[in-house]
Structures are given as C-alpha cells and as structure tokens.
Amino acid sequence: MNRLRADLLLLLVACIWGAAFIAQKQANENMGPVSFVGLRFLLSWMMLAPVAFYEHVKNGRRPLRGADVALAGLIGLCLFAGASLQQMGLVATTATNGGFLTALYVILVPVIVWAVTGARPRGMVLFASLLSIAGSWLITETGHFEQWSRGDALILIADVAWAGAISLAPIFLSRTDRPFFLAFTQYGVTAVLGLMIGLGSEPLSSEGVIAALPSIFFAGLCSGGFAYTLQILAQRYTPPAEAALILSLESVFAALSGAILLSERLTGSAFLGCALILLGVILAEAAATLRAIRFRVRRRTPG
C-alpha cells in the first residue's frame, strides 16, 4: 500500500464515521451509552477474531514483546475512553456543541506526537488544523457555541483520548507488523470495560437492546470492525497529524448524512465550513506531496 491509497482509506473511514454519528445518537434513546459502546465493540472484536488469529499464526515465529502488548492495551484504553465519553456526552449536550468539540482532536494530535516523539508539527499542518476547526464551527447549526454543559466537558476529554489513540498507533505499528492484533486488542479492551461498567451502572432491558440493534450492528460492524481497522492499516503509511486532518472530514459526512437521512437543512455557513475542512486536508496533502518530490529530487541529484 502507498500513501495515496492509505489516504483514500482514511477518507472512507471518515465517511463511515460520519454516518455512524446518527446511529450513535439514536442508540442513546434506547439504552445506556457505555453499554452501547460495550456491545458494539463486542461485535467488532468477534469480527476481527479470525483475521487476528490468521495474523498470529503467520507471525508465530516472531512473538510480541511485553512492551508491545502493553502499548496495544494502552491504545485500547484510549479507544474505550474516547468512545464512552463521546457517547455519554451526546446524551447531555446539543449536536451543535458536540460537532464542534469533537473536531478539536485535530489540533491535539500534532501536540501529542511532539510530546511523545519530539517531532515538531509543521506549520502547514497546524494551519490546516485551524482551518478544520474553523470549518467545524461553521457546520454547527447556529454558528455559535451554546451554553456549556457536562456533556461538552465529556466530549472535550474524549478528544484527548482520540488524539492519544491516533498518535500512539503508528508507534505500535513501527515496532511490530501486527495491525490486526492492535485492532483486536483495542476492541477487546473496549468491549470488556464497556460491558463491565455499563451493566454495572446503567439500566438495560431486552426491549431497549432490540430497539437499538440496527445502531449496534452498524456501529459494531461498519464503524468499528471495518472502519477502525482500516484506520489502523492506513496509519502505517499516513503520519498521525495528516491522518487526523483527513478523519476530521467525519464532521462533513455527518452533516451530509443528517441532511440526507434526517432531512436536516444545511445552511450557507455549513457549506462554507465543509469547504474549509476540505481545503485544510488538501493543503496538508499538497505539502506532503511537495516534500516527497523534493526528497526524490535531492536523492537523484549528484554531489
């Protein structure tokens, strides 16, 4: 796989995640948010089990180190924290606030990468991230932030977890060629913690679960088992900051999904916001392409 294909996979992931936002909101009407997270990632875990087992057999002669397993577990904790806090936040905040706050992880990723690896974020990446945040602001229904709530705080904390998962995944993948093990571990950690905490603290009925089954299956199989796995595969080739920018298109696809599936009206400012996010992604990708071209030219130039 090359960089272009990886970026296209991330674009597909953003599209699926944007559509899943509607399923997540509908699930909260029928069951507890953490229980929903546990059930959806249980499906994701079951979906990845055969592929992860095949990968294990294929790489059986190269056992994982304890540090690698611990890092995969830490990334799993980030996924659980991000998914659970976001789902809980959607119960207690408006879609306007939630859509804007979720996009803030874009600016956190280069900061975390800098703190962990020492690699300074490039100026174009930071500029593109700011464009993405401005675009997300304009996509909101009213174009201004409504009254602060507990749900807003939860989604803001979730951004840190999302950024941590995106930033740490390439470190794991650079150490070991086991992307499916990472996905399998993430889903397992999230499913176990989600079910333990959800079943212990939230009311759950068979009627509610049955009503939420379409959301559980879409979020568990499409958004989780398929899209999250594609994200991990693609991050072997796309740097974290650029990956976060492409994934920020999730808010664009969420707005389009709402317009198509829920007959929500997109304002002129929302269309401008979508354009700004897309422009940020294009600028970051163009800068990466120019760097690659200059690098190849320097290698071919004698002396």
Rank of each mutant, 00 (worst) to 15 (best):
T176L: 02
S205K: 07
A255D: 08
A286I: 03
A255W: 01
A286L: 06
L262S: 12
S205T: 15
E250R: 04
I216G: 15
S223D: 03
A241Q: 10
S223G: 07
F181T: 14
L247C: 09
L278C: 14
A227E: 04
E264W: 00
L182V: 08
A286Q: 06
V189L: 08
Y228I: 08
M196K: 09
I197Q: 00
G208H: 11
S251M: 04
Q231T: 09
A244K: 01
L261A: 15
E285Y: 11
A287M: 01
L279D: 00
P179M: 09
T289A: 15
A219Q: 13
V189H: 06
Q231V: 02
G200N: 04
G268W: 00
L168G: 11
L245A: 13
G225A: 10
T190A: 14
F226G: 12
I166T: 14
S215M: 09
L195M: 12
F184H: 15
P214R: 13
R265P: 11
T238N: 05
T229Y: 02
R236S: 15
L247S: 01
Y228Q: 12
T176C: 13
I246C: 08
G188S: 05
I246R: 03
S201A: 10
P203T: 06
A259N: 04
A212P: 06
A243W: 01
A244E: 06
V281R: 05
A254K: 09
L182G: 12
R175H: 07
A169N: 07
A241F: 12
T289G: 10
G208R: 11
V209Q: 07
T267Q: 09
A287T: 08
A244N: 00
T229G: 06
